[in-house]
Design a protein around this nucleic acid. Sequence first.
DNA 1: GAACAGGCAACTC
DNA 2: GAGTTGCCTGTT
Length: 275
Amino acid sequence: MYKTFELCPAGELSPYKTFECGQCFRWNALGEQDYLGVASGRAARVFLSGETACVECGEDDIGFWRAYLDMDADYAAARESVMRGAYLTDCAECGAGIRILRQDKWEALCSFIISQCNNIPRIKSIVEKLCALFGEPFETPWGVKYSFPAAERVALLEEPELAPLRAGYRAAYIINAARAVASGDMDLDAAAAMDGDAARRYLKGLSGVGDKVANCAVLFGLHRLDAFPVDVWIKRALREHMPPGFDPKSLGEYAGLAQQYMFFAEREKSAGRWR
DNA sequence: GAACAGGCAACTC
DNA sequence: GAGTTGCCTGTT
């Protein structure tokens, strides 16, 4: 039985900003501030109803979705802590309502391996095909959805079986990572227990995982909010708006949240939706 | 048709 | 250790 639950005031969770800030690939807009997504073999709709953010989900799953949406964290305080200087303050205002999702470790790692040298629509299409071909189907009020396939499942595949994904040279990286995770050579639970830097170095032991992908996996998969992935958007933003030699680590335990605010703000700006 | 893209790895010097 | 190049594919 699916039910609608109230989560928090709209100011603390913007579905649009949270699902369009580049952290996840399995959420799609049904309307403005109304998103349908899949995580850990469950589906939910997250939307605003007046001044309240709500989730529609299986009645037994509300605990899962509250955790996934990081509802126990105080984003007002975290946001305040990264408002250092005019530029970061602007970004934090633009991104207010972004929450860092608590995504599955393997799904985040695999998704960001796929992300390299790809744009978001194409990443989403590759991930969707991976799920449709190798994930488990399940019924939802919105039709049949597919879970993200476990590493153990992907580990059994050979490269030609991934050809329909059109993932190109990333296919070998995906299978290699799946085998490492499934065999325990890459222990993501152990990585979660390490400090952020150690986890990043550990993940870089996988082929196809460099600094950017490792930082994304640490931030979004291990929920280490101090990780600060630098992609071309962030590189440009740092160059144009921050003093030379600025060290993102100086932003403290929520540096990764600041990164998401910057990323979202820069993309809104380039789309002409902000400043 | 060539250049490029939210990156990595292997190779060069 | 800094710089260059190939890699699949889809888009411009």
